[in-house]
Nucleic acid binder design. Structure first.
Length: 477
RNA sequence: CGGGGUUUAGCGCAGUUUGGUAGCGCACUUGGUUUGGGACCAAGGGGCCACAGGUUCAAAUCCUGUAACCCCGACCA
């Protein structure tokens, strides 16, 4: 894109100030508007439509893997939240409390859910009695509240939209399988739909979820090289089951505790879309999630037949999300506008085209112009949208791979952290002391222990003792 | 929670030093001319100057306090 002229001057350049660029995009692409509540945002039609597409696609994948949707209350009594020790300690600092109903003080205060493990557990304890009741594969789409100190649109807001899957299984083996299965669902979704490549792996003890036995994650790299935890899947073992007394009678008439999992992704994925694919002209959306896939712009639409032709084309394009812009803004304004919104394909149709029975397709990602006979339009659009989807994933993958560096000794790691952006791969002994030292001195946190292990050295990058595993380190959002 | 900045029309800002009729650009409304990369002309509408207290004949401007937002660090999806 570097040889492309920058047409929109209102956006801060991405490479000048990434944080400012991000906020500019979020506002200019009309994804959100700040509200009068600190840290809370209005998700506008352009932003919400992206979420709806994410939701629709993921929900199908959840259903295909046997899950059912439910809805839990948004309030959790304090006593219920207290039941699992690690869990409450992890979340207590950032929960919002309801203390009054109308003018009456509540006997017991209620927290606004920061996550719903406790509610699901309480419910499971009530409905699970026999091995015949298992597994329970539930998911809910909802919003949760976490009283964060500093907030950023989509990346960290007081209230955010997400889905949380909570499952209960008869055996450890089955629960572990579920944990990995859902992580894979997320990874595939990110790559196939969002065109975002991810690193799959396990979180260290230090970084794992409050109350989990193991936390698995998909990590993606933003354009500034920072990591974004894009989805997590937790294996709970029977810890919650014991705290909440979720037992069933097995085939041998023995009481057993269930084994549980939970997994979630949030509107944070929209932040990832922006930061992975966006450029100086605005948002760039992968066709699979773009609310509008083709924006039709009539040129000289006051002239006889132009607007009719544009509408005729729109009607003929079944199977695509198409919009005709018949407002009286100038064509140039519209070009910029749809680039800002990230619409993958622009279709220009004017008097000259109508004469030749053709139109002009312009790719958002490359700005390549494709003159297309109207008779081949549908096939051409279908092919081009697929190309865009594929190319976007490929570019993101290249960006990530070019910015993944291996370090075998501590000095190199510190030097890299200082001079380079991206992911840093280094061997680790498994000791939390080394992890903390790396955080303090290199300002890097462990992102994950990747499933795809590779031995790039024999010893820990930090303490030089024998290494247990390869770890991805980075700066995170 | 530390360090810095901001708050004046829907948005972006000037005006505050030196108190004296509320300004500019964009957006909006109406009419006309335009239309292949953010068009032009003309005429309009829009303000508790973040909030609460002071000082003063008079406060966007000076004083005190509060809040929200943004950026950089520590914590988190």
């Amino acid at each position: 894109m570097s040889d492309q002229k920058k047409f929109v001057e209102e956006i801060t350049s991405r490479d000048v100030d990434f944080a400012k660029w991000y906020t500019d995009i979020v506002k200019k692409a009309e994804l959100i508007e700040y509200s009068s509540v600190r840290g809370c945002m209005v998700i506008r039609p352009n932003g919400y439509a992206i979420w709806e597409n994410i939701q629709k696609n993921l929900d199908e994948r959840f259903k295909a893997t046997g899950h059912e949707n439910v809805y839990m209350p948004m309030f959790i009594p304090e006593s219920l939240l207290q039941k699992e020790k690690d869990h409450v300690e992890g979340f207590a600092p950032e929960v919002a409390w309801v203390t009054h109903g109308g003018s009456e003080k509540l006997q017991e205060r209620l927290c606004v859910r920061p996550t719903s493990e406790t509610l699901f557990c309480e419910h499971y304890a009530n409905i699970i009695h026999s091995y015949r009741d298992l597994p329970k594969l539930y998911n809910q789409w909802c919003s949760v509240v976490r009283w964060e100190k500093t907030t950023r649109p989509f990346l960290r807001s007081l209230e955010f939209l997400w889905q949380e899957g909570h499952t209960a299984h008869a055996t450890e083996e089955e629960a572990r399988e579920e944990t990995i299965k859902m992580l894979n669902v997320y990874a595939q979704f990110c790559e196939e739909v969002l065109a975002i490549p991810v690193v799959k792996g396990q979180k260290t003890e230090k970084e794992k979820f409050a109350g989990a036995v193991e936390t698995y994650t998909i990590e993606s790299m933003m354009h500034d090289g920072k990591a974004l935890q894009s989805g997590t899947s937790h294996y709970f073992g029977d810890g919650f089951a014991k705290a909440f007394d979720i037992q069933y009678t097995d085939k041998n008439n023995q009481l057993q505790y269930v084994h549980q999992t939970s997994w979630g992704v949030s509107t944070r994925l929209i932040g990832a879309l922006i930061m992975v694919h966006g450029d100086d002209n605005g948002l760039v959306l992968p066709p699979a999630v773009a609310p509008t896939q083709v924006a039709i712009i009539p040129i000289a639409m006051h002239k006889e037949g132009v607007l009719d032709k544009a509408r005729e084309i729109a009607n003929s394009l079944t199977g695509f999300r198409v919009k005709v812009d018949d407002t009286d803004n100038s064509p140039g304004w519209k070009f910029s506008q749809y680039e800002m919104l990230g619409v993958p394909l622009r279709l220009e149709i004017g008097p000259k085209d109508i004469e030749k029975n053709q139109c002009v397709l312009v790719r958002r990602d490359t700005r390549e112009k494709i003159f297309t006979p109207l008779s081949e339009l549908s096939q051409q659009i279908s092919k081009t949208l697929q190309d865009i989807q594929k190319d976007m994933l490929e570019r993101a993958r290249q960006m990530r791979d070019q910015n993944t560096h291996d370090a075998v000794d501590f000095d190199t790691l510190c030097k890299f952290a200082d001079e380079k952006i991206g992911f840093f791969r280094a061997m680790w002994c498994g000791d939390v002391a080394c992890e903390e030292k790396i955080k303090e001195e290199a300002a890097l946190t462990s992102r994950c222990i990747p499933f795809e292990q590779e031995k790039i050295a024999d010893t820990c990058v930090c303490c030089k003792k024998p290494a247990k595993s390869l770890v991805y380190w980075g700066k995170a959002y």
